[in-house]
Design a protein around this nucleic acid. Structure first.
Lengths: 239, 239
DNA sequence: CTTGTTTAAATGTCAGACATTTACTAGACT
DNA sequence: AGTCTAGTAAATGTCTGACATTTAAACAAG
């Protein structure tokens, strides 16, 4: 695979990295393939070798590439990717057609993890956590009506789930909130965003909020699972 | 805080990064502090500015530092650390006195997550997963007798739990196996490694293995929780 | 007191040369 | 013919010095 099909480079710090990463995430190269040389990338995008090396350093840190002096740069397979690297989430978020295998893997993780997180949140949430949850839910409610505000609605959705992870008051769980954005943003491209499904989604979110507010860990677990069942349908995952 | 108390630099690629990271993890600097300048670090350790920048790039990617042109390098607070970055696990592993707050946070995460993971493993494990689990358990058994083999025993312990995460056959859960090493290695420094506690630990691990082998998700969850209760005692966590 | 300008100091970037590692090739030797 | 060896090319890694850019603080003018 070559660089020819990639969009032009617009400048900016992490832009080149994002460009290359998204091409890799989209499957432009196969695992084991040799990635273009530093100098080729540099001349193709008209940037210095330094910028190329900076970008490749990021991709290497994310587990997308493996570099060895003399041999070159090799593309690693999906199981080696560092899905929890925040940069990865950023790159995945902007991708219109995320690999279905990835969407499914992230969903499966959320389905097994988020009930637990919601339960912890019900036990540990403090006033400000509840405020964050309520504000996010309020935002979801107000943007549910018009189709224009799809992106904004998704942002509130992300904020709601992120607030849940934060409310667990655990440093590790909180980091995983990064995974939410690409997972929820995938909804925009995959679901029809119909009014009745949105109402259903809202109702299920409200149950999570209520359970956490009343410090009922069991109910929170169950409600979180229900939210994700709704998500599965909207994502087109049979399950 | 200055660099004076740090051990000398021994060469090697990621060595400088490890040195500085462990100093940060050990709390040599407070959040918000200004980190030493590139040139000062370079002259102190007698390395080029390039090497310093490479090291600082790693620490920045791990969320330990925040760098801005003109201002300098600032130390970030613990809640911003990327605990799931594999480099972080590596740095934490070698640290003799890990911050108790961190040990506790990682343990709390494991206590809530690993039962779920064990349950998934019971559902998804294949032949090779079981082989990995059995080999790790076998290693734990054989190194349990003599106190000399503490480190080796811990490695088998890590391998056992890592095999559990892998057996879940989920790309995201699998990544979190990285967190196991620092968590389990902390046991070496904190537990007395007495024979009876080791026997108890072994017995509880065996129950996890048996439950996964017989594809009993419920039992696996319960058994995993029992293993972690044992770990809590050995870590000196009251819970 | 506020605003604007200058200055110093830090990180960021560039360019070129060189070092090191790796894979391949061509010969020499048995 | 086969095998070992030396050599060569090509890739990433490193060093160095100069310069660019950003930031904060000092200072001066209004």
């Amino acid at each position: 695979m070559s660089l020819d099909t990639l969009p032009p480079h617009q400048g900016g710090a992490g832009n080149l990295a994002r460009l290359l990463a998204q091409a890799l995430l989209a499957g432009h190269w196969q695992p084991g393939d040799i990635f273009p040389r530093e100098l080729d990338i540099g001349s193709h995008f008209a940037v210095s070798r330094n910028q190329v090396r900076n970008a490749l350093t990021s991709l290497t840190a994310a587990g997308l590439l493996e570099r060895t002096a003399g041999r070159g740069t090799q593309v690693r397979e999906m199981s080696d990717w560092h899905l929890l690297n925040p940069l990865m989430s950023e790159w995945m978020t902007g991708l219109v057609n995320l690999d279905p295998q990835l969407v499914r893997a992230i969903y499966a993780f959320r389905y097994s993890a988020e009930p637990v997180v919601a339960g912890l949140a019900a036990q540990a949430a403090e006033t400000e956590d509840l405020q964050r949850l309520e504000m996010a839910f309020e935002g979801m409610t107000q943007t549910a009506g018009n189709i224009e505000a799809r992106a904004e609605h998704a942002e509130y959705d992300v904020a709601f789930h992120d607030a849940t992870y934060r409310a667990s008051h655990n440093l590790v769980w909180r980091q995983m909130g990064h995974l939410l954005r690409p997972s929820i943003m995938a909804l925009i491209h995959r679901s029809q965003h119909r009014t009745d499904t949105l109402d259903d989604s809202l109702a299920r979110h409200r149950q999570v909020l209520d359970a956490i507010r009343s410090r009922d860990a069991n109910s929170a677990e169950i409600a979180a699972r229900e939210v994700l069942r709704r998500t599965a349908i909207d994502l087109g995952i049979v399950n």
